[in-house]
């Protein structure tokens, strides 16, 4: 190799991954092809003004939990779509945290219209906690329609964040007994909470 080429190559390799446009965490933890695909989704999100860090975290989650490359890429792309739909529902004003929470809500099967309604009922305060509680209620087994109703009622009455959190604690207690450690986390919303 000529000296000039060696110099160029060394310079390139000496650059941190971030300077080459890649998130170092991805290249360190995923194989090259997967890292590249995830990076594409990350760059696309950035270009569209969507939060990109949740996508990186989703990939790292998959890596740590031992998921296959296909599943990792699928999960990242799926989240990208959910973030985009979250922004369609909430508009350009929504913060990254709100968009991320909203993406989770959509993933849990809640309707974009519920999110828009929530936003219209609570225009002055951040929506992260109400959206998070809405998602958590469904995750605890509360039927989406009922969860939506409860959360919107609180929003309509102008209740503060603590009361949304209290709502969630109530649901947790109703469904308490919980799951034995080690079982898969996803509980279908169709199952009614078990009263104990």
């Amino acid at each position: 190799m000529s000296f000039a080429r060696w110099l160029a190559l060394s310079a390139l390799l000496a650059l941190p991954a971030t300077a080459r446009g890649q998130d170092a965490r991805l290249t360190e933890r995923l194989d090259a092809a997967t890292a590249s695909q995830v990076q594409q989704a990350v760059d696309s999100a950035k270009g569209a003004g969507l939060p990109s860090e949740p996508l990186v975290q989703k990939a790292l989650e998959g890596a740590t939990l031992g998921a296959s490359d296909d599943r990792i890429v699928a999960a990242v792309q799926s989240l990208h779509g959910q973030l985009r739909r979250a922004r369609q529902a909430l508009g350009g004003d929504a913060s990254d945290a709100e968009l991320t929470a909203a993406a989770g809500a959509l993933r849990a099967g809640l309707e974009p219209s519920a999110l828009r309604r929530l936003q219209s009922l609570r225009p002055d305060q951040p929506l992260v906690v109400p959206i998070a509680v809405l998602t958590d209620l469904v995750a605890e087994g509360v039927p989406p329609a009922e969860a939506t109703r409860s959360v919107l009622d609180l929003a309509r009455d102008g209740r503060p964040d603590d009361e949304f959190v209290a709502l969630r604690r109530q649901a947790q207690r109703r469904g308490a007994g919980g799951e034995p450690v080690g079982r898969p986390a996803l509980r279908p919303a169709a199952d009614p909470p078990v009263d104990q």
Binding site: L65, G66, A108, D136, L186
Partner: peptide, 11 residues
């Protein structure tokens, strides 16, 4: 709460 969005089969 469990993650309603668990993607990888782990809790």
């Amino acid at each position: 709460p469990p993650a309603a969005e668990s993607d990888f089969g782990a809790p």
